[in-house]
Design a binder for these strands. Structure first.
Ligand code: FES
Ligand code: FES
Lengths: 155, 155
DNA sequence: GCAATATAGTACTAAAATAGTCCTATATAG
DNA sequence: CTATATAGGACTATTTTAGTACTATATTGC
């Protein structure tokens, strides 16, 4: 249940590598070799990450990629959004809800709460933690809170 | 990000309908009409729900479906599992992890914790709440108040 | 027994999403 | 000017998901 795409998985791996070498500039080829992933695929992911502002790039010879900001300021939610867009748990949970059976079901509202809770938990996980660099354990306080409270979100 | 399949969505709708009529037996055709969904699809979903023990069925004339147990004892996690199986957030999070780059990445562990947290949250949502039948807003608000004093939020 | 109704199981087809590749353009260092 | 590297987009292949169809079996009521 609840898979993330391979591309997103790759993205976290690549970002973790960049996080481990914050002052260096790594090329797509280098990252592909380090990660044992295909070079074209890695390139594609990095391009997407650049589009979404998670990495900065330098063109030309001696170019490459680095994190656009410190690993502690990049969250799992941002990575997910960057690769998969703001798709929600179910169609009904999207802002423009045009579910055909909405009037008769009433389930959508509850799923939205679940969706919200998950988003909140993902916003508390930083790349630092994903990369295993932070030392602090992953926390899920917000998840617990959101599940019970169900407050509004702004993202 | 993090979609559930349409089938799972349908399942919650159908289960919610069954939950709303706990003492009646509804046929697939009736449920399809109520939910404005295709009859073959509804039938398929119900068969799967029966296989996974979430609904009980009666064969033959005057047959139909009903919940296998009270709505309060059916959780969102169970519904998800019934329709989509125990697939995890990423391949690496599965019990039989055979990720090819596992040795070099170290990201898997953190995702596993995210995965676990999401599962736990889904286990706390019951069908009663999904169906909008429980008194859940009060209960959640009270719990939140009791638990308040948590930690700060991050974007 | 027999016909009608309804679920059970399974196999198949169609459609959509995802993954991966390739090509062209552009920027930079030397 | 050339080699290297990213940027963007188009394309194909694969996989997953959704939906349909068909056969078998159980139950009711005549
Ligand atoms: S399935 Fe869309 S609102 Fe319920
Ligand atoms: S991507 Fe599989 S263990 Fe990291």
């Amino acid at each position: 249940m609840l898979r993330i795409s391979k591309m997103t998985d790759y993205a976290t791996v690549l970002l973790a590598r960049l996080a481990a070498a914050p002052d260096r500039q790594l090329t797509a080829t280098q990252l592909a070799a380090q990660s044992h992933l295909g070079a074209p695929t890695v390139s594609k992911v990095l391009k997407q990450l650049h589009r979404r502002g998670l990495v900065s790039s330098t063109l030309g010879l001696r170019g490459g990629y680095r994190l656009a900001r410190p690993a502690a300021e990049i969250t799992a939610a941002q990575i997910l959004d960057a690769l998969e867009g703001p798709v929600a748990l179910i169609e009904c949970a999207r802002q423009t809800h045009q579910c055909s059976i909405e009037s008769t079901c009433g389930v959508g509202r509850a799923w939205q709460r679940v969706n919200l809770a998950i988003r909140r938990s993902l916003q508390e996980i930083t790349l630092l933690e994903l990369a295993g660099l932070g030392g602090e354990p992953v926390r899920f306080a917000a998840l617990e809170r959101a599940l019970r409270g169900g407050r509004a979100e702004r993202t």
